[in-house]
């Protein structure tokens, strides 16, 4: 049962470092905790026979987006945040209640999922990228292209915003 052990360890690590990310007061350390969490998630994807998702997770999130986060944090030299507690107890009570309610809702949905949902119709054959690619360019072609145009629009928008007046 080694894969199961590795899966549990990786999942535990992902949750642990997600908590570290929230709790840590230094923004740079928070980002690094998130990197570890994402990496552990990628390990769980590999064990779930979805190596493509794992690779994309590492390339896009750990390798690009979080590096940009780190880049900005370092450029601005963001200092450690001071611990500040709300002086109104109602805030604390409300946030605690919100967390419990969210956790309960999540748990209820997840428990229901295992019972009612059948296994996915496309059997994931380990490492086969062709089915994913075929689906992407046939059934989901429209949403795929729409997404790419959305990203292009964001790119052009960022470029226009960042461009200084008068420069070429």
């Amino acid at each position: 049962m080694t894969p199961r052990l590795v899966f549990d360890a990786a999942a535990g690590l992902a949750i642990l470092f997600a908590c570290v990310m929230v709790v840590h007061r230094h923004p740079v350390k928070s980002v690094l905790a998130l990197v570890v969490s994402f990496f552990a998630l990628a390990v769980t994807y590999v064990l779930l026979a979805a190596p493509l998702i794992a690779a994309v997770q590492v390339i896009v999130y750990a390798g690009a987006i979080l590096v940009l986060f780190l880049f900005v944090l370092m450029l601005l030299n963001v200092p450690e945040e001071a611990r500040q507690s709300s002086d109104r107890p109602i805030h604390q009570a409300l946030s605690a209640g919100g967390i419990v309610a969210f956790a309960a809702a999540l748990l209820a949905v997840l428990r229901g999922y295992g019972a009612t949902q059948a296994a996915p119709s496309v059997a994931p054959s380990p490492g086969d990228l062709a089915p994913v690619a075929k689906l992407l360019f046939s059934d989901h072609l429209l949403s795929f292209e729409a997404l790419s145009i959305l990203l292009l629009a964001a790119l052009v928008g960022a470029f226009v915003l960042a461009r200084r007046e008068g420069s070429p």
Binding site: P51, A55, A62, V67, L129
Partner: peptide
């Protein structure tokens, strides 16, 4: 099966 992607994942890390 994801050899080339694995390489780029590690390069980005």
């Amino acid at each position: 099966s994801i050899g080339v992607l694995y390489l780029f994942a590690l390069t980005s890390l």
